[in-house]
Design a protein around this nucleic acid. Structure first.
Lengths: 190, 190
DNA sequence: ACAGGACTGGACCGATCGGTCCAGATGAAA
DNA sequence: TTTCATCTGGACCGATCGGTCCAGTCCTGT
């Protein structure tokens, strides 16, 4: 009987990631997470000694890895940088359509609450920079003249675009994101 | 003795706006709001019969008005659209520097939690669109060829830029936002 | 076979949550 | 001065919060 696949730790991490993204760190109780993950409290505090906070850090890391894989896949298949950006935007739009459309960026929902928690903020910073690093590496590979700025631009429009798509409940905002990018500044002949 | 200025309703609204922005809707308890606003529970439920939810809607509206005023002021003083954007970015950077630098967009912090609340989402949409409308009107006034798109672009880079500034703890991200805007698409000679 | 760490199950805790209720204070109109 | 609606003050409520604790179970190495 395999009613509960994987090990308990992964089940907890992934369930928590999903629920935190849906309702934010403070919007989800341990009871709900434990019920959905079919795990008792003892297991949680065995795998995550600091409780909810440890769980949130692990959940955010897991969600971040998924996003970084998505970025890597989009650029690996691409002919040039711009094509990679376009592919990524379309795939994120698809992701948006297949999710309850009020969800936030998983990192922000999980880690950008609770005022005085330095560990959360530092962790969020690290995860975000790992996305940006990934993009920058591809920008370099494609010979973009200002890879740092290009990576920052993509991060900015993705974050802001998701927010606007959420408000308007319209994934086309995400598909049109390449229109908001100053491509002339990223041309090879610069 | 004027220990408590203004009327109770405004004190509650503004205190709630500040605390919600700091810790999110679910991150602030009524007790904390009431203590800081120096008001008892009876007053809260007199002015806001539906309790925390009514209070959040009012707080978000109040915060939104402040932001819209800021947008209007930046563009009213400006020579052209681009100058207005630059001014706005610098003022927002200043605002960022003078606040605890982990705060979110006040609308998002207050209204973009709790999964199934349609009223919150609709209200957030309305408030965001009021910002975008304000920008679009100025874009039209300055003769920008694609005012809708220009307004969307500004919203997107402001939201995304704030997020990146927050992660990096660096307000210069906001000051450099104009570098991420495709100005050639907003030129008059189009 | 058995020893011992890894892991599970869940009862239990004090604190805090959002919300209800109503007596008392206040102030303007009659 | 009396009246009445508005507003304030705070005691009180059941539910849920995150966290603790430990007995019991399972698995692995010897």
């Amino acid at each position: 009987m395999t009613r509960r696949p994987q090990n308990t730790r992964d089940r907890l991490t992934q369930t928590a990631a999903r629920l935190f993204q849906r309702s934010g760190y403070n919007g989800v109780g341990l009871t709900e997470i434990l019920t959905e993950a079919q795990a008792p409290k003892g297991s949680l505090y065995h795998h995550f000694p600091k409780g909810k906070q440890d769980l949130a850090l692990a959940a955010a890391s897991w969600a971040s890895d998924g996003m970084r894989d998505m970025i890597a896949a989009a650029f690996n298949d691409a002919q040039d940088f711009r094509a990679g950006v376009t592919t990524l935007c379309h795939r994120i739009a698809k992701l948006f359509d297949s999710s309850p459309q009020w969800e936030t960026c998983p990192i922000a929902a999980t880690l950008f609450e609770s005022p005085d928690n330095r560990a959360f903020r530092d962790h969020a910073d690290r995860l975000y920079e790992s996305w940006i690093d990934e993009v920058r590496d591809h920008a370099k590979r494609f010979g973009i003249p200002q890879p740092d700025m290009a990576a920052d631009t993509l991060f900015i429009v993705m974050q802001g675009g998701w927010q606007l798509a959420r408000a308007r409940r319209d994934s086309n905002v995400l598909r049109r994101l390449p229109d908001h990018v100053p491509w002339d500044r990223f041309q090879h002949q610069d």
